[in-house]
Design a binder for these strands. Structure first.
Length: 560
RNA sequence: GUGCUAGUAGCUCAGUUGGAAGAGCAUCGCCCUUCUAAGGCGAGGGUCGGGGGUUCGAACCCCUCCUGGCACACCA
């Protein structure tokens, strides 16, 4: 809004001066010098045969002739070698802030959609390890971003419950002759890595596991009963941890529940003439003439007729279309699966399974401090639950008061530490897992955000929003106001890139400025009139902090 | 081999449509008789992997080389 006002003003000047280009005003990258900047003088230098500094001065000179100038701009200067630095007027700042005093600060999707999210994707019968935190944390944040704008969002966990790991567990159960009522979580935890390791060395065992997987897919009754039992235990554990993390799904479907849609999809592909046989397997050729890179075919069914990844993903789409008919799909998965999803999306398009649009949101892999897949000292992957317990123990040990905290507050802080540590990084980056990183509570961390919110919340009266007048007290005051005004641009950018890290970093910066304001402007020493203004301002910023925290999945503790 | 991706402060990383090199941690100062010091203020620390090119201007775009990571049909 500010930028469009400035653009308008500059456009008139450009017309006056015969400058052809559209003015480009951007948020300042030198916030110590100005609020907004314009770098057009550089582009114009060649055509106008003038130095950028002279052009800048000429632009400013003409701007000042405009009757609107004083209403919009407090000060504009040319800096070497030709940046036009703009400080906007107090009136413009405060009017814009007053206009933000509406629900969700006026953030709203132009045309709200029904969007389906697929994230989480934990494998059944395998314990959740630390790498499994990324998909639900990032996915939940992106979902909440879209929901905040008024889109209808639906999320599915998409359990990995039909792959070889189930066959492996079934194999162990048969081998050990475990009764259906005697299956326990600790048994599953113990047996999965054992058989998984065995499959790598023993081809016979692997073949048996594959056979069990296939028979389960075909719906063999006894295996189905065991599957239900394993599922109940395993999903219960996953649910417990995701609940703890405040991550929620509308549906708890998985590959297994999509199996009944496989035939329908297969027939559709057949009818459209897309299914081909190759080396005994069924494939879909998804390459097209415009491809600049090789595009291997999608493997729909294995040569033994078994379903694989692509089969169940396509079947799931059919299931979701029938159940919800979304307009858009967003998939969260490890970047290594990018090619797979490209193939699936292309198959959907070719077969016209739905007209909905599809988006793949990849994230980087979790590695150890050495940059390689990490291990604990015992040699196995650290479990997610153990990590959470460790974070909690570290936090409690930090201060004597922490052991007096209510459990619910403690849990909010613990999950907040983990979430903010993850979300502040660009999701596509590989991720260095370092336990020290998840023990930090100072600096750019979840607790800092919470501390800031609670600290400021204590000095402001809830819901007191007086219309801001046209005063700005000092630099820390001004910087805070300008930062608040950037909310919409930041949110747009975060949505455009499906990037919660943009929100996380903005939230952090807003907190930094809130703390600076707090330290520089003492409410208890201010006049009543000034205090009302400051409290109103802090009410806006703290409500933004609260909402953005919520979007990222951070829950505010009652006190710290 | 084909393709994708990364290399920025001692460490972990921002830098999202080419514009003034950033943050946190760590190190070193200063600030609690003052609304929460899990805080604030300040300092040091950089040939943005190397080399070319395009541009008034390149961490960003193009070329090339070096070093990692990943994906390339019967795992998910």
């Amino acid at each position: 809004m500010i930028i469009s006002r400035l653009n308008e003003l500059f456009k008139k000047t450009y017309n006056n001066l015969g400058i052809q280009i559209e003015p480009k005003i951007i948020a300042s990258n030198r916030e110590d010098l100005c609020d907004y900047q314009c770098d057009d003088a550089f582009k114009l230098a060649k055509d106008m045969h003038m130095s950028p500094i002279d052009i800048g001065n000429k632009i400013i000179e003409d701007l000042q002739k405009n009757s609107e100038y004083d209403k919009i701009i407090e000060d504009a200067e040319v800096y070497t070698p030709g940046f036009i630095n703009i400080k906007i007027s107090k009136e413009l700042i405060n009017d814009a802030l007053n206009k933000m005093n509406i629900p969700h600060f006026g953030l709203k999707a132009d045309s709200p959609k029904k969007i389906f999210f697929d994230y989480g994707g934990p494998n059944m019968a395998k314990p959740l390890h630390v790498g499994h935190s990324r998909s639900p944390i990032i996915g939940e944040a992106i979902k909440r971003m879209y929901a905040y704008l008024g889109n209808e969002v639906i999320s599915d966990i998409h359990l990995g419950d039909t792959g070889l790991q189930i066959g492996q567990v079934l194999y162990a159960i048969q081998r050990d002759n475990v009764g259906i009522d005697n299956i326990t979580l600790s048994y599953l935890d113990k047996v999965y890595p054992e058989i998984s390791g065995l499959c790598k060395t023993d081809a016979e065992v692997k073949a048996k596991c594959e056979d069990l997987t296939f028979r389960l897919q075909k719906g063999e009754e006894e295996l189905e009963r065991y599957f239900e039992a394993i599922s109940k235990i395993s999903v219960g554990e996953i649910k417990r941890i995701y609940d703890y993390l405040d991550i929620h799904f509308d549906t708890w479907e998985g590959e297994h529940s999509a199996l009944k849609y496989v035939d329908k999809v297969e027939n559709l592909l057949k009818d459209k003439g897309l299914l081909k046989e190759s080396e005994g397997a069924l494939i879909v050729d998804v390459a097209n003439d415009e491809d600049k890179k090789p595009m291997p075919p999608l493997l729909f069914k294995k040569s033994n007729g078994a379903c694989i990844y692509a089969t169940t993903d396509l079947a799931s789409i059919e299931q979701r279309v029938e159940d919800f008919d979304p307009e858009h799909f967003i998939y969260l998965a490890d970047l290594r699966q990018a090619l797979h999803f490209e193939q699936v999306f292309r198959t959907v398009k070719l077969s016209n399974l739905t007209n909905a649009s599809f988006e793949f949101c990849g994230f980087g892999t979790v590695n150890g401090p050495d940059g390689k897949p990490f291990k604990t000292r015992a040699g196995d992957t650290p479990k997610l639950w153990d990590l959470l317990q460790e974070i909690k123990a570290n936090f409690v040990a930090l201060k004597a008061e922490n052991s007096q905290m209510e459990q619910s507050d403690l849990d909010k802080i613990v999950t907040g530490i983990l979430k903010f540590a993850d979300l502040q990084n660009f999701r596509e980056k590989d991720y260095i897992f370092d336990i020290d990183k998840f023990s930090k509570v100072v600096g750019k961390t979840g607790p800092y955000i919470m501390y800031t919110y609670l600290r400021i919340n204590k000095v402001i009266e809830e819901n007191l929003i007086t219309k801001l007048d046209h005063t700005i007290t000092n630099d820390s005051d001004r910087r805070l106001r300008i930062k608040i005004l950037q909310l919409k641009d930041i949110f747009d950018s975060a949505i455009k890139h499906n990037a919660p890290d943009i929100i996380a970093n903005y939230l952090y910066n807003l907190c930094v400025l809130s703390n600076a304001f707090y330290e520089n402007n003492r409410l208890n020493e201010a006049s009543e009139e000034t205090k009302t203004q400051w409290v109103s301002l802090l009410n806006i910023s703290n409500r933004i902090i609260l909402d953005l925290s919520n979007i990222l999945g951070l829950q505010m503790p009652s006190k710290m």
